[in-house]
Write a protein that binds this DNA or RNA. Structure first.
Lengths: 208, 208
DNA sequence: GTATGTGAACTATTTCACAGCT
DNA sequence: AGCTGTGAAATAGTTCACATAC
């Protein structure tokens, strides 16, 4: 039974990680997995694992643990990975082209349908199989292609402007790589990947 | 006075963000900034800002707020950004070369001194000003160059192996982009940037 | 006997609220 | 009057511990 309790955001991150661990164990041909095994792999407490899963249902059998195939499917459902997601990427610079070429997204069901750039030299060309469009076409293509997720890989100064374009085009979620905080309407989900921030974090711990 | 209280990790992340906000305000030529202004920009509570800063000292003046130049310097000190950090990058693929070309790190004091790859076609060449070495030279170069931070941008299967090489070479912190959990000795600081995980997170919220 | 699911206890983090400094 | 720094209160998240199901 699915609880109405508020689910901590970090539980979702852990769910993704359980999914990874299950993948690894699957290759080792186990059939069942216990919460303490998942917990051990991730350096967390075993009741944390059970709590996380219990937010979404009763997937285990007392005395037996969790059936791996079943659990993987359940997590896949919870995370919304049973369907394909249509993604657009804005900014075909160094990072943008690296992400276009990155194979990992496809496997998880994230398909980059279109890329956008404001550099005429890049427009109309394909990059790693994805067509690069003029950014002025953003709204029409995102609507026509029913794209729901946008990835921002442009320099910081233009990031807010592009975020506005994306939300006006009806995008539902944004993954922002520009090292700047951007504002979006509250019905749009925003996730920031700030690379300098991560290095600064390491720097802090090294300086102590 | 610096407290001995345990500092929440998320405080460090917020510190980086305060730093960003200060940069923006500075361009607008303000002299002082109050906790409620920083808080507003970041959509958090103003006493959160004061608490975060109070872990490290008393930087503000009641009735006046925080002197911006001073506060920026203090945060810089706290985060260890007053010195240069010597960084190595392993894996000059799509993502690796994008990061080598990324200018943002330099500005924050993170200098990528050396890159490593196992592909002979890449070795000996320069990429965005950084020499790419044979990965077999990793240990000697990291020691010779006194490199303290390693960035892993290779495919998942080899990530653990490279992490081992890095720690054996004496690296103190690792920024891992491979979509796999890696284990490091506890005296080595590890930070994971898992791009699929972030997309999965968005996917979860879009599916609700 | 073994391991889940879950209230209860505990720990961490955030927010409140206000005394005291400028 | 305005805003910091900080205990106290409130909220969120983790771990314990055990009744219960296999």
């Amino acid at each position: 039974m699915v609880k109405k309790t508020k689910i901590p955001e970090i539980t979702i991150t852990r769910l993704s990680n359980y999914f990874r661990v299950l993948d690894e164990f699957k290759r080792r041909e186990f059939y069942n997995i216990a919460s303490y095994q998942l917990a051990e792999e991730m350096d967390i407490n075993d009741s944390q694992v059970r709590k996380d899963l219990a937010y979404f249902g009763q997937f285990g059998k007392p005395g037996m643990g969790y059936e791996m195939t079943r659990l993987k499917e359940e997590i896949q459902k919870i995370l919304g990975l049973t369907r394909k997601w249509r993604v657009a990427l804005v900014g075909v610079g160094n990072l943008g082209s690296a992400l276009l070429a990155y194979k990992g997204f496809q496997g998880q069901g994230f398909h980059i349908i279109a890329a956008f750039d404001s550099d005429p030299k890049k427009m109309g060309k394909k990059w790693a199989g994805t067509v690069v469009y003029d950014i002025t076409e953003l709204k029409s293509i995102i609507r026509k292609e029913r794209i729901e997720i946008g990835i921002i890989t442009i320099p910081a100064p233009a990031a807010q402007e592009v975020a506005n374009l994306l939300t006006k085009a009806g995008i539902k979620a944004i993954l922002n790589f520009a090292p700047v905080r951007i504002a979006v309407p509250k019905n749009v989900r925003l996730s920031n990947v700030d690379l300098s921030l991560r290095l600064e974090n390491l720097s802090f711990f090294l300086s102590r």
